[in-house]
Nucleic acid binder design. Structure first.
Lengths: 342, 342
DNA sequence: TTGAAAGCGGTACCAA
DNA sequence: TTGGTACCGCTTTCAA
């Protein structure tokens, strides 16, 4: 059905040389004569030759492909990360194959299997909530296929991972809210089996403690961090009274703020709020949201580079498994009287 | 370095049967005896066999991989689309390889080449601004590799594509703004060589005409639709005076509204505004933004299904090349006095 | 219902 | 610097 593909044999025959030489020339192997190479390259373009990756992969036992599995593709943060990853892998001539676990550990294992069967050279993973980061990964270890975790990483084992210091960030944010005068700070967060949320909560509690405040269980609101959850949490806070909120992501913080406003609260006069991620939304709601700058694109570039460097033998990921990236507290009007909009 | 992989030959040897039979059994070929098959399957799992996709691909001349090229990965809309695509392709056992053109036609061509060399079975493309959707695509046509365009599609040729009716949406939005009492409606949009923006502008002009208004060149503000562009546009509108704005995306609309508010304007009292896409941000700014609901996830599912159906021979994409999806006008407070927040 | 064997298109070792 | 050739692992035709 397809027109016949041109192979190195066709080129070899036409030029009356051996396939080995053609192969070498095409791969810019320095062993071949400059003139022969030029001739071969010219013939290749002329004949419309394209290399067959599969034959090469089959022979070389590698694929030039790296895989990435994320909990969900459709978040601003993940989109940024993937953009950063693509940027690096594409540059380096690697293919990127993507899948999402939909926050489902079983689907994660299924995706893992697919990646494995597709012989990815390396894997980037951000865990589904509820996943331990162990089940399903054994095969990769056995076959020495490098796996690098990022953002949501396993915590019961030490494996190569890139994160930010969520606990410190949570501590900074909470301390900031307390410093701005909040007396009763709520914390809206996600599934505590996920390291990022658990650590942010840890930082939150630590900050309360450091300020001599006791932690009250009903100030901790555990949700799925959706827009809807923000609204429900707002209602809860209206009922229980509070003057500060630290939300573990910006989208949820935004909808929470809006609900509070609808109910007549003034932000930041009555309640001050901080989010997390520095999503586009944090800059554009009213008032602009104090948040933690968590640079997704940059993280994407970092994890891809680490993995490729490891594959290239430039350094061993396992020698310094735990990498922490910088994150920053960004103070905006939602938590500050001084900068508040008129 | 790697532990030796188990192949069908290993299984064959162990069971003292031929590789052909093993291959058949593994592929659930009905020719093989049920008992033999059971035995083979058991041995395969026991021995830790995994099929080598490359050998199979090489032999079968197909890859079970589809490619997607988008202008930019890091937008809420694209993230939704890709999520939808992944959903379908993963379900169907296809791999998804992704790349972004960074709005650069040359990079688009490079990516096209990579996809081609990787022998993708089919390709999904949303064009870089400035791309004609022709250069670089010839090889796909020659080799009969199906290419399906979406959102940003070629306009000088008729090729399989999935879009929404941008002109009608633009017309609806503008008409709505006029109906709500706006006398001078600005339009902030993107590169007019891109079909989506050009068509929205067409709809905008048509609506003005239908309302008996003449189109004034300085009411058309062409930008890159970034957050910064929204701010600049706001300043321009402050200078020239206007009481309605139709912005071709929500992010830019959001920052524009915020700048107008900073300069003392009341939305919607002084100026009413409409956006495009129904991004998360549109629901959470103040006031909530009237917009066009453009369901990205759904579009992702549609394009992936179409392409896979085509590959499966279920229908020919070329028989009905132009598919238009539904989009809806969502009226919110940014353009309506009645629903306005107190 | 099973087996033998010829490829698919490269790569790389060994010889020349 | 080049050529000959075995081999990567699977699928499939033909024969048994």
């Amino acid at each position: 059905m397809h027109k016949k593909e041109i192979t190195i044999y066709d080129i070899a025959e036409k030029l009356d040389i051996s396939p080995s030489t053609v192969s070498r020339a095409l791969n810019e192997n320095s062993l071949v004569n400059k003139k022969t190479q030029k001739k071969i390259l010219a013939a290749a373009t002329l004949m419309g030759y394209r290399s067959n990756t599969f034959a090469a992969n089959l022979r070389m036992q590698r694929t030039n492909t790296i895989g990435i599995i994320v909990p969900r593709l459709n978040s601003y943060f993940m989109a940024e990360v993937i953009s950063g990853v693509e940027n690096v892998t594409n540059e380096a001539g690697y293919n990127l194959i993507i899948s999402q676990s939909m926050e489902n550990p079983e689907k994660e294992i299924k995706n893992l299997k697919t990646m494995f069967n597709n012989r990815v050279d390396g894997l980037l993973v951000s865990l589904a909530s509820g996943s331990d980061g162990i089940s399903g990964f054994g095969v990769f270890e056995e076959k020495k296929i490098p796996v690098l975790f990022f953002d949501r990483v396993p915590t019961t084992v030490i494996v190569p991972s890139v994160t930010i210091d969520n606990e410190t960030a949570g501590f900074q944010m909470t301390t900031h809210l307390l410093n701005m005068g909040a007396k009763k700070v709520f914390h809206i967060t996600g599934d505590q089996s996920v390291n990022v949320y658990r650590d942010r909560t840890k930082g939150y509690k630590k900050a309360l403690l450091a300020a001599g405040l006791s932690f009250n269980e009903n100030q901790l609101i555990i949700t799925d961090l959706s827009e809807e959850a923000g609204i429900e949490a707002a209602n809860l806070i209206m009922k229980n009274g509070g003057d500060g909120i630290f939300v573990a992501n910006d989208g949820c913080a935004a909808s929470c703020i809006n609900e509070l406003k609808r109910q007549g609260k003034n932000i930041p006069k009555d309640i001050i709020v901080g989010g997390f991620n520095n999503d586009m939304i944090s800059r554009n709601i009213d008032p602009p949201l104090t948040t933690i700058d968590y640079p997704g694109f940059e993280m994407g570039r970092v994890i891809a580079s680490k993995l490729l460097d490891h594959l290239g033998g430039k350094f061993d990921m396992h020698s310094t498994p735990l990498i922490t990236m910088k994150s920053d507290l960004l103070v905006r009007s939602s938590s500050s009287f001084i900068n508040r909009n008129p």
